[in-house]
Design a protein around this nucleic acid. Sequence first.
DNA 1: CTTTAATCGAGACGGTACGTCACGTCTTAGG
DNA 2: CCTAAGACGTGACGTACCGTCTCGATTAAAG
Lengths: 193, 193, 193, 193
Amino acid sequence: MVGRPRSEESRRAILQAALRLCDRDGYPNVTLKAVAAEAGTGRQTLYRWWNTKADVLLEAMTTIVAPGLPPSPPDLRSFLMDTFALTDGVAGRVVVGLMAEAQSDPDLAERLRIGLIGPRRAALRGVLESSVSSHFNLDLIVDMIFGAMWYRLLNRHAPVDAALAEEITELVEAHLRRDTGRSRTSPRRSIRS
Amino acid sequence: MVGRPRSEESRRAILQAALRLCDRDGYPNVTLKAVAAEAGTGRQTLYRWWNTKADVLLEAMTTIVAPGLPPSPPDLRSFLMDTFALTDGVAGRVVVGLMAEAQSDPDLAERLRIGLIGPRRAALRGVLESSVSSHFNLDLIVDMIFGAMWYRLLNRHAPVDAALAEEITELVEAHLRRDTGRSRTSPRRSIRS
Amino acid sequence: MVGRPRSEESRRAILQAALRLCDRDGYPNVTLKAVAAEAGTGRQTLYRWWNTKADVLLEAMTTIVAPGLPPSPPDLRSFLMDTFALTDGVAGRVVVGLMAEAQSDPDLAERLRIGLIGPRRAALRGVLESSVSSHFNLDLIVDMIFGAMWYRLLNRHAPVDAALAEEITELVEAHLRRDTGRSRTSPRRSIRS
Amino acid sequence: MVGRPRSEESRRAILQAALRLCDRDGYPNVTLKAVAAEAGTGRQTLYRWWNTKADVLLEAMTTIVAPGLPPSPPDLRSFLMDTFALTDGVAGRVVVGLMAEAQSDPDLAERLRIGLIGPRRAALRGVLESSVSSHFNLDLIVDMIFGAMWYRLLNRHAPVDAALAEEITELVEAHLRRDTGRSRTSPRRSIRS
DNA sequence: CTTTAATCGAGACGGTACGTCACGTCTTAGG
DNA sequence: CCTAAGACGTGACGTACCGTCTCGATTAAAG
């Protein structure tokens, strides 16, 4: 026997309510109780399909927000512009909240790396491969670029905006360009995700 | 009249209990109730002097952990070595937890910037000033170096260790050195903290 | 939609736990926390349905204890015997505690008068009407009979027992009887509850 | 060594503050903390000389309020008039609060009986002895008269005023007078305080 | 065209941390 | 040695959210 099928309507209502509340109250102040109420759904419906707040918002990120990312951006400048633009809104708050929660939830941490962070790292690395000298440890460059972004997202001492994208692009192209690379840095080592 | 003086013993017991529980259970799983119990003090004593968990741990960082920082490190390599070494332990977990909490507490965010993050930024900038060409926007370099550190602390795709310090130092000295600087990057802009 | 129905089991467990603790520790020493623990229920379940300790015990009195009262006692002697018998146990402690609390809670005071005290006054008055001369102010007689009971319950200088019932009955029947009434007392005035 | 003598000023300030707060907030809402603050005295000073709230108010009653009682009232009517008049004010609230507290404090109960209730019972008994036939159990009559008073003080279904004094006096004089007493009531039994 | 079964909303359940309040004790400096 | 001031450890308060558990009602495939 099969029973009543899952309501797609409830699913989307819950994901969108979660994002809406994250935007309004901030990730840590969102409760699943409030999400259910905001979505106009029962609480058990929520717990039947997700286990935690992080589960809900991770799915919301990958099914609602992520599709808005640039598919295959041509150059570093556009890649950073598009990426940074996305951080200015719910997506930024959510992803920072998820990252914070992952600090004490190893399982969530891994799903974050695999589902969200890793793919973006790979994408940036792909963009860099065509413009940065192979003498450099690309993973380190990726760390420093996305690191600057995360650092500013968290500490808010400066915005993550087009100007940052521009500055980073100029720095990379002026000093790490394929033809200008005279690196004495050590050979790259393998890195997770 | 004066009344009974504040118990320095209780104060230190609470700060150390908070750090201990952070180490054991992770920042978000620490409760003030448990801190009071672990410290062997009354709960009211805790609320008398601090308002939130973040308050307690921020003071713990600045009065117990921070004094362990290098006073005036000579060069970039040692500076990063010392700094990164500190992140491997309670300090890392705490500071990440504080940063996460600051996302929805603007007041805490500012105190973090002023008391913890800003001074470290200034210190790194000071070190860079003597070795990096003035053509570069030093704030951006600081963002990228500390950014890489934060990024790895949060995402844990790679360790924040001596090797990272070494790689960053080599990259900076090889390509951004004072005498080799032929930057075409845009002029620096002012940046908060 | 309806939701999960209220648990009758929890309700009775709480009421009985409240009475049990009142009996053991005395009304003022009962805490709602202890009631919940004794009843094996959550604390919130208690607060969901009652606001105060007095609320709980008032309901316990009217739904558990009161049904044990004599339905329609034939004569004054039996009425007093039955009534006084009830005061020797939890009921006495509870009702005294409620009365004490009502001194600073006008709302509780009114509910006490309407739900507990008033009906007993009416019942006693009914019994007296058939045996006491209409020359007397029955409300005053009620005050003096129940007053003696309350006075002894509170001050404990003498027991509220069958002997008291006997003495009062004799006094009333010897001197206030319908046919012997030659009262010169003033006409009755109306009295609340 | 003798040290500093006890401050009589503080003592009176505390007693009066306790009465004032009882009047304003009701006995159960008075806290010793508030009494000390109201009296402008330290909290320890209070605890040094009294153990409980009841202690303070019992002393306040016996040293401040009681002296206002009629010394040797001539007849039942004046005795009741004077007595009832006193219940309309702080004294009523305090004595009811003490009585309530005594329900779970046997020691306080006894001090109440000895220091406050017993003497008044004896006084009323003395008045009755000269006007009521010796055939009656005077303790029962005392119980019924003071009982009516307490009952009304607590339940507030009717005032404790001059009218009540008048009605009781008339009832007693009309039906229990020395020369009219043809009582068939049982012989008196001994009664505590 | 009725079962049958899993879903839906609603909402009560036993827990637990929250931040506040009053308790009664203690530890200061000052009279 | 008493006084005021006030911090101390304790424990109940009433609130909020947790994740689980019943409910009656709904929905669709299987019999």
